[in-house]
Simulated assay, not measured.
Amino acid sequence: MKATPQGGTSHRYRALRTFVLSTDDTVPGTFEITKEGLVHDLRAPSGRHELTAALIRRRLEQVMPDVLVAHTGKPDIEDAPHGIMRRPDIMVIAEADMEGEGAFDPRTVLTAIEVVSRSNPDNDWVTKLRDYPLMGIPVYAIFDPRTGTGAVLTDIHSTPQGPRYATRKDFVYGEDVTIAEWTISTQDLPRYQSEQGQAD
């Protein structure tokens, strides 16, 4: 099932969405839309970030049923009523829910996985930590090559600030980690280099 912009979507969100779609593949990095506005991640299309995502995807697909995909890349997931458009590094979704045109409906995404960007770590640790439960994504896993650590967040519940994940399980690279129903190794996942100015 694909998401489509709703008739009640704000003019501001429609304008931001038009801008994001018009710049796709023409400006380096990735644009996403949050409640605050645009986020521009300048991460390079290669390097340790992408290797980490590729390894996680491969390990997940070895243990998941064939009807599920650990998908990377386009399209985005879109929650137009809340004014949010995101592009997870990896999303676990059923093959059947990838059919059709346009952005994915976040209600069909079983898990969102992010590899923390060196250039903008708060995008993964702060704003997506807020946006993904608001979009109804039941599991959010974060891998941080800066520190060799990560966390799996589950159990969406209501708070005065809006929906939030109630349960957080931290892990250290080298341990096995359970994401939703699937356990994978984090052994030998790459770390970012420590030199100043090194981008991945």
Rank of each mutant, 00 (worst) to 15 (best):
T4W: 10
T4F: 11
T4K: 04
T9M: 09
S10Q: 10
H11D: 08
Y13P: 10
Y13Q: 01
L16G: 02
T18D: 15
S22N: 15
S22G: 01
T23V: 14
T23K: 13
D25V: 14
T26L: 14
V27A: 02
V27C: 00
P28R: 11
P28I: 09
E32G: 05
E32A: 01
E32N: 12
I33C: 11
G37E: 10
L38V: 10
V39D: 01
D41K: 11
L42T: 13
L42R: 14
R43G: 14
R43F: 12
A44Q: 12
S46V: 08
E50H: 14
L55A: 10
I56K: 05
R57H: 07
L60I: 12
L60E: 03
E61N: 05
M64C: 01
V67K: 01
L68P: 01
V69R: 15
V69Y: 10
A70Y: 07
H71V: 10
G73H: 09
G73K: 11
G73M: 00
K74G: 15
P75E: 03
P75I: 02
D76Y: 12
D76V: 01
E78W: 07
D79W: 03
H82I: 04
I84R: 07
R86F: 04
R87M: 10
R87Y: 08
P88Y: 13
D89W: 03
D89F: 05
I90R: 04
V92W: 00
V92G: 04
I93G: 03
A94F: 08
A94V: 02
A96N: 07
M98R: 06
M98V: 01
G100E: 04
G102K: 02
A103T: 03
F104I: 07
D105Y: 01
D105H: 08
T108Q: 03
T108P: 00
T111Y: 01
A112W: 02
I113Q: 06
I113D: 05
E114M: 13
V116L: 04
S117T: 05
S117H: 08
R118N: 12
R118G: 09
N120G: 10
D122F: 08
W125G: 07
T127A: 11
K128P: 09
L129G: 14
D131S: 15
D131P: 05
Y132H: 00
Y132S: 09
M135N: 13
G136C: 06
G136T: 01
P138N: 10
V139G: 04
I142R: 00
F143K: 06
D144Y: 08
D144V: 02
D144R: 09
G148C: 04
T149L: 02
A151D: 03
L153D: 02
T154L: 06
D155M: 06
D155E: 15
T159Y: 06
P160I: 12
P163Y: 03
R164G: 07
R164S: 13
A166L: 09
A166M: 01
R168W: 03
K169I: 14
D170S: 12
Y173C: 07
T178F: 04
T178Y: 06
T178K: 07
I179L: 09
I179F: 10
E181R: 14
T183E: 03
S185A: 07
T186A: 13
T186M: 12
Q187V: 11
P190D: 00
R191S: 11
Q193P: 02
Q193D: 12
E195H: 07
Q196T: 08
D200A: 14
